[in-house]
Amino acid sequence: MRVSRTVATVFGGAALLMASACAANESAAPNTGSAGDPMTSTATAASGEFGAACAAVPKDGPGSFQGMAMDPVATAASNNPVLSTLVAAVQQAGLVDTLNSAKDITVFAPTNEAFAKIPPETLNQVLADKAALTKILTYHVVGKSVAPSDLSAGSFETLEKDKVSTAGSGQDYTVNDAKVVCGNVKTANATVYLIDSVLMPPAA
């Protein structure tokens, strides 16, 4: 079942709005930890993760970087409050077991802020359409491990079968038109890149 033109338009508009908001937030505020200490690129690079939104990830417990590394990806995401809307969508689509049982995959994970740009009635419409929701969610998953160095000029087939394109360098990467806001997060079976907007399959 294909996603309606209206839904696709709203998701696309959300991507543009979120990109603008993200840029404004980054220029307006420094990166700080939970205690207000500056977060430098060295601090995140030490454990492999990078990006401004990494500061919002819990410092300890199951939802922390260390905690997520112990669990398969859907379980790991469910412990991270930054990804609660995505987790609800994955559960609604019945994809928890599919993602948890996969090996060495890559997930481009929209944050709660990305979903928040979508009008509630439109989001509810998509959540109620399992076929459309599955198509959108599987477009965010690549069936192999993608390292940050692979993102500089990449094209990757997703589980939905269409491709996503990546570009950038250093700690500044995009996936289609979405920006990676916290990258190289490891779970037991996946590499996760948190992104600032929801990706839409080309045929949607």
Rank of each mutant, 00 (worst) to 15 (best):
N112A: 04
L95K: 08
T98I: 14
A114T: 01
Q125T: 15
L127I: 12
I118S: 07
P120T: 13
P119A: 15
K117N: 03
A116T: 01
V107F: 10
D97H: 14
L133G: 01
E121T: 14
A128V: 07
E121P: 00
P119T: 14
I118C: 06
S101D: 06
Q125Y: 03
I105W: 01
T111H: 10
F115R: 05
K103E: 13
V96I: 07
A93T: 11
T98W: 06
N124E: 10
F115V: 02
D97A: 15
I118D: 04
A116C: 07
I105N: 00
L99H: 09
V126S: 05
T106V: 15
K103V: 12
D97P: 00
A128P: 10
A109E: 07
I105C: 00
P119W: 15
D104H: 12
A109H: 03
A128F: 07
F108W: 01
A93P: 03
L123H: 00
T98M: 10
P110Y: 04
A128H: 13
L95C: 08
Q92A: 15
A114L: 04
Q91H: 09
V96Q: 11
T98Q: 14
P110W: 03
K103L: 12
N124D: 14
A131N: 08
A102M: 10
A128L: 15
K130R: 14
N100E: 13
A109C: 07
T111G: 13
Q125P: 00
T111K: 04
A93C: 05
A116P: 00
P119N: 13
F108Q: 01
I118A: 04
L123T: 02
D129K: 12
L127D: 05
E113Q: 06
L133H: 02
D129S: 14
N112C: 08
L127A: 09
D129M: 12
L123M: 07
K130Q: 10
Q125V: 09
A109K: 05
G94W: 05
S101T: 14
E113N: 07
Q92K: 13
N124P: 01
K117W: 02
G94E: 09
L123W: 03
G94H: 06
A102K: 08
A128M: 10
A109Y: 03
Q125F: 05
L133Y: 01
E121N: 09
A114W: 08
Q92M: 04
F108I: 01
G94I: 10
